[in-house]
Design a protein around this nucleic acid. Structure first.
Lengths: 248, 248
DNA sequence: CGTGAACTTGATATGCCTCAATACGAGTGG
DNA sequence: CCACTCGTATTGAGGCATATCAAGTTCACG
């Protein structure tokens, strides 16, 4: 869906797929993004839950999370945001954010004022379509994870989380023996999967003993038994990718 | 957000708010909806998870659910759909539904082909905006419930579910002593809140003994202690409505 | 080295699920 | 009018999975 492309001689910008074939839209998009691009450090807060929203976000590089918390302090990572993604944090009230945004790694992110954004969407049909597709994918992803949060065991939740992040973070498809890195602590992963950090750790160890995967060195993951992982995650490996990952 | 309005002399249609002030859009919308309107019986299946999607749905009357299931049979109600709502069941693959759709009550629902729908959105800015707002509200709602599914106790989940459904189903605001009906079984509510039907029952009884609410006669609910319910649900009664309910 | 963040592992408590039995209410047919 | 049935709700008993608390380890970084 996304492609690493140079953009106006500035540092490489990830742009939504499909734009290569529409030079007008491509240029308009890059101009807008580049004029609002900022850098933020890893582990920094980008937007607080309930805070005023200045516009939509486009993540050019790095990983971010959107999250929500309850008064008792419990937190859930609503979604993990990867490079090339749009993010509209607005709730039903367009001026109020429904989620908090945090940087997992150093990030380059553009905050695009809503008016400019709306204008661009009105003028460039290709971009409007890319955004609509991206929204559909995000919703499908939320639903998929909501299913596991609501009804899955800890095993299922962790297995699914690892699978989803592997799928999304790598252009190439999932394969046994593949090693990938997730820039999240076990506590983050717990908030993502609805588990305590301690139980994330136990579950990972159990997977490791069962020969399903290995996870070490701050979440370098190697999947050892793809079938077993799919079974535990309750995933259909064939249909899942096309449902949660937008295709060009 | 929605309003009961006569439409072309056909049975009353609920249309998105804001359209009254834009006669063109209003007529175009009603024409499209009415030409695709069908009636479905309560408890009937409208679309299966993974099935081919013919278009977007507009619910004119009645209640529906969107849901997902895991291979082991566990199910989650992703969202409850109320009259006046749009629903695009598409996943990242626009031809495949990410959720199943079921009727809770008798419903009047229009399945609008994606091409007609896209044309309407392109031509009528008001409708495009109403849809965008409705999508933002739905996403915010999902996030809010995801938080409780992932991290809340059974008490929190049920209290939140009841609060959300009361908020959304009544034009007037929440008030102590208000009685409202939820056309769902305890099993449905369990799938909505990520709990077994048995535990839904126990939780409701416990709430009743604690004087928080009464629920009888297949989910006629009366809220007796609004503050307690908000506390249990971990809700801010002031800010929640504007975040999950689109305003005209 | 010293410090702090992240991870690991153990012990304990409890919240929720599952199974099972029973009760209730609406609709149906005799 | 009653008997039957089916879906739904209620209540009890028991077990397991996960949270929480606590102690200890490892590792990166000063």
């Amino acid at each position: 869906m996304s492609d690493l492309s140079p953009c106006h001689g500035l540092p490489a910008t990830v742009v939504p797929g499909g734009l290569e074939s529409a030079p007008d839209a491509f240029v308009a998009f890059c101009t807008l993004v580049d004029s609002h691009r900022t850098l933020r450090p890893a582990r920094g807060t980008i937007l607080l839950e309930g805070e005023a929203v200045r516009g939509i976000y486009f993540l050019a590089s790095g990983w971010m999370t959107t999250s929500k918390s309850m008064p008792d302090g419990h937190r859930v990572v609503v979604d993990v945001v990867l490079p090339g993604s749009f993010l509209d944090p607005a709730s039903a009230d367009p001026g109020v954010s429904s989620v908090g945004i945090d940087a997992l790694t150093d990030v380059a992110v553009a905050t695009i004022p809503r008016t400019s954004w709306r204008r661009l969407l009105g003028e460039q049909k290709v971009i409007r379509e890319a955004v609509d597709l991206s929204v559909a994918a995000a919703t499908s992803r939320l639903a998929e994870r909501m299913l596991r949060l609501g009804r899955g065991s800890a095993d299922t939740r962790i297995a699914y989380a690892l699978w989803e992040l592997c799928l999304r973070s790598s252009a190439t498809s999932l394969a046994e023996g593949r090693v990938y890195h997730i820039p999240m602590t076990q506590a983050d992963l717990g908030d993502f999967a609805g588990l305590s950090a301690v139980h994330v750790c136990r579950t990972l160890r159990r997977f490791e003993r069962a020969g399903i995967l290995s996870a070490s060195n701050h979440m370098d993951v190697e999947i050892r038994d793809l079938d077993a992982l799919a079974r535990v995650a309750q995933i259909d490996p064939v249909s899942l990718p096309s449902q949660i990952i937008p295709t060009i």
